[in-house]
């Protein structure tokens, strides 16, 4: 995947392949406070069977849901498939540079809702990594599995297949038919100036 993605609207197939493919996820900026979005994401993805690693230099010595905090990507003791970034857009480039210096390199750089750094994305894509910006992996996993439908959220997927009720630790099938080409542009509108009315 050396071609640059259109980062305004990701096809569901792109997000689905990433979430099905990665196993180990490092969360940069993970918070121990249970009302912070990074805590929500860390806990949810851990319960869906991902191997989660919390990164926060101010929390070294503590643990998050049984996983010890580490100070930086360099300090992780095992290969990482995806780096999920909870930092302001302006601080993303050094994190991506640090990720690219790892051996082996991660496969995916993911920036959370409200985080977008196109220069850093281009750097990662030039090195052969996949990039997602201004999205949340918890929301996307919940959406593609339709688990988020419990909250009345439009999953923009359809399925005529029976799926088991989710329980803790279960990986869910993300293989549902997508609506509207997986165009997730709506989630960008709230964080950018709107243009035009239709």
């Amino acid at each position: 995947m050396l071609n640059r993605m259109n980062h305004d609207a990701y096809p569901d197939s792109y997000i689905r392949a990433i979430l099905n493919g990665v196993k180990t996820i490092a969360v940069v900026g993970a918070s121990p406070l249970n009302v912070r979005p990074s805590y929500f994401v860390f806990k949810y993805l851990a319960e869906r069977g991902y191997d989660m690693i919390p990164i926060n230099p101010g929390q070294v010595g503590n643990s998050l849901l049984g996983k010890p905090f580490v100070a930086s990507l360099r300090d992780i003791d095992r290969p990482v498939d995806m780096v999920d970034i909870f930092r302001a857009s302006a601080h993303v480039m050094p994190i991506v540079e640090e990720a690219l210096a790892l051996t082996p390199q991660p496969k995916v750089i993911w920036m959370q809702i409200g985080v977008r750094n196109d220069d850093a994305a281009a750097r990662a894509e030039a090195a052969g990594l996949q990039v997602v910006m201004n999205r949340c992996p918890k929301i996307e996993y919940g959406r593609l599995s339709s688990e988020i439908s419990w909250m009345g959220v439009n999953s923009r997927t359809l399925s005529s297949k029976r799926a088991p009720a989710p329980v803790k630790g279960m990986r869910l099938s993300l293989d549902r038919a997508s609506v509207a080409g997986g165009d997730t542009a709506a989630s960008d509108r709230a964080t950018r100036p709107r243009s035009g009315t239709s």
Partner: peptide, 21 residues
Amino acid sequence: MTDRTPGFATLAVHAGAQPDP
């Protein structure tokens, strides 16, 4: 699966509903 755009009538029948788990 292919990412395509179902029409309004398909959504009126299917959106939100799948067989009971």
